[in-house]
């Protein structure tokens, strides 16, 4: 399969790889939201950590990804897009925007869906930890 230049670029130079602590540490950090979506047996797992200010601004974001090049590029791009945004702005990001930006072919659309899911899940986690009512549906679209 031929990849778009943007996918290759993200694959070679992924932005914001990392985490804000081990899986245990981030569980107890109220300034950090964690989103882990996908499953190893499906061939993709995305992990998104967001550091959120008390005002609800995403100050920093880090990702890790087990998945194909398009999955890596989608999560890398997602961290770039959400940094500096409010959680509500971040929630308005649609997977179709990721598809467009990275020129993903139809078989790779699920990668963009996972990236959108990871944003949503991370924000939900942060809200829950901070006693903020959820504004989105708990589960993302089936894919």
């Amino acid at each position: 399969m031929a990849y778009s230049d943007k996918v290759i670029e993200h694959y070679q130079n992924p932005r914001n790889v990392g985490s804000f602590g081990s899986s245990k540490e981030v569980q107890t950090r109220t300034d950090v939201g964690v989103g882990i979506v996908g499953a190893p047996e499906c061939g993709d797992v995305m992990q998104l950590h967001i550091k959120v200010s008390p005002q609800g601004i995403i100050e920093d974001a880090k990702f890790k990804c087990f998945g194909c090049g398009s999955a890596i590029a989608s999560s890398s791009l997602a961290t770039e897009w959400i940094k500096g945004k409010s959680v509500d702005e971040a929630l308005s990001i649609k997977n179709t925007q990721i598809v467009e930006e990275l020129s993903l072919p139809p078989v790779k659309i699920h990668c963009s869906v996972l990236a959108e899911d990871s944003i949503r899940t991370a924000i939900e986690d942060w809200k829950k930890k901070n006693g903020i009512a959820s504004t989105t549906q708990a589960t993302a679209a089936a894919h």
Partner: peptide
């Protein structure tokens, strides 16, 4: 270095 599964493995999970 960007695999969440490798981190979990390293943590002993």
């Amino acid at each position: 270095q960007m695999s969440p599964l490798f981190d979990l493995y390293k943590e002993g999970v």
